[in-house]
């Protein structure tokens, strides 16, 4: 499936170094520990995980904001990982981004016209008038209009600012847009407006999205496939509906169960089935083994010794969990998991 992929990530490693006393490279910390992901043209991959899972590090590596410390990021014919962070302009223009915080992602001293046309100024030789025409066109795509061109970001609400950020990301007609928590800073009533907008533009313009978010339910609405990250590892990947409705990996399951639902009665039942848990110690785990083993109710001795490889799951996709080692359809362990 990696042959026709637009973006294909293999064994990606992202490492951050602390600083020692004299300013030299200190202790290394692997934020991403060998991730595999793939996105086809015009499709959306939702990348879900909690804080510290490494999902934003993958986004930053794809965008060339941090260098990869190993592995490949194939985008079309080029390996982005090999270029470190110095992408040639034609590649740069094809990968754009929308960030989480619409209050700091727009330059406060620029007008909307400056912000939306900045990619055109950097990458094209369009005249001012041509850029303005294109800017009006782009604002139309995000349901804003020409009258907004001269305004500054602070004159807009959070939802409108995010529309401006999307218009700017669309300016160069990119093939891939990395959406890093695009709606989590917005009000509930505005979130869906932005999700709907992203969905419509994707189908219209044939853009692929890498959607980073912490909320599986939200990601499920718009993604074709979903990948779940935990402590730098991708623990599960598969078609959106399968991951959301029939999560395989114990962590994905825990993640879904922890999200409160809008039904007080259901919440009561869920509460009854668990009792107040003490705070967990920060896991200080040996390098080998499953990253989730100390929280996993199904942990086995071998989970300590060996990192589980990706096993295929019924309904599509993979889970990095020994419970799925048995041939599809026969796993008694999996039955146990489903019953739990």
């Amino acid at each position: 499936m990696s042959d026709d992929a637009l973006l294909d990530i293999r064994d990606l490693r992202v490492t951050y170094w602390g600083k020692s006393l004299l300013g030299f490279r200190g202790k290394a910390f692997d934020a991403v520990k060998g991730a595999n992901l793939s996105i086809r043209p015009g499709q959306t991959l939702g990348l879900v995980g909690e804080s510290g899972s490494g999902k934003s590090s993958i986004a930053n590596a794809v965008l060339g904001l941090v260098p990869a410390n190993g592995g490949t990021i194939r985008f079309g014919d080029v390996d982005l990982a090999a270029m470190k962070t110095r992408y040639p302009p034609d590649v740069r223009g094809q990968i754009q981004a929308v960030f989480q915080d619409p209050y700091s992602s727009l330059n406060p001293s620029m007008t909307v016209e400056d912000i939306v046309t900045e990619p055109l100024r950097v990458h094209t030789t369009m005249s001012r008038a041509e850029r303005r025409t294109r800017a009006v066109e782009l604002l139309g795509l995000v349901s804003l209009s020409e009258e907004h061109l001269e305004r500054h970001p602070h004159q807009f609400s959070g939802g409108q600012r995010q529309r401006i950020a999307i218009a700017s990301a669309l300016a160069l007609a990119p093939k891939l847009i990395v959406l890093d928590e695009p709606v989590s800073a917005l009000d509930v009533s505005t979130q869906n407006q932005i999700i709907n907008l992203l969905y419509e533009r994707r189908d219209e313009l044939g853009i692929a999205y890498l959607l980073i978010a912490h909320d599986l339910a939200l990601v499920h609405h718009i993604s074709d496939r979903i990948a779940v990250m935990y402590l730098g590892h991708i623990v599960e990947e598969g078609p959106s509906d399968r991951v959301y409705r029939a999560p395989a990996h114990p962590y994905t399951r825990a993640l879904l169960d922890a999200v409160p639902v809008l039904d007080p009665d259901a919440q009561r039942r869920r509460r009854a089935s668990r009792k107040a848990a003490p705070a967990r110690e920060t896991p200080r785990l040996a390098a080998q083994g499953c990253p989730y083993r100390n929280r996993c109710p199904f942990a086995m001795p071998r989970c300590e010794a060996q990192l589980p490889p990706d096993y295929p799951v019924d309904g599509g996709g993979t889970a990095a969990c020994f419970l799925f080692e048995a041939p599809a359809g026969q796993g008694s362990a999996r039955l146990r998991l489903v019953q739990a």
């Binding site: 609400s157 959070g158 939802g159 409108q160 009000d187 509930v188 009533s189 505005t190 979130q191 869906n192 407006q193 999700i195 709907n196 969905y199 419509e200 909320d215 339910a217 939200l218 609405h221 718009i222 999200v259 639902v261 809008l262």
Partner: peptide
């Protein structure tokens, strides 16, 4: 508000919205 919550609907966009903003 209730219908705009991510868990409220189980479908593909268009998701229910409240028009405008606060």
């Amino acid at each position: 508000l209730l219908s705009a919550m991510p868990h409220a609907s189980d479908r593909k966009p268009p998701l229910p919205t409240i028009r405008g903003s606060v």
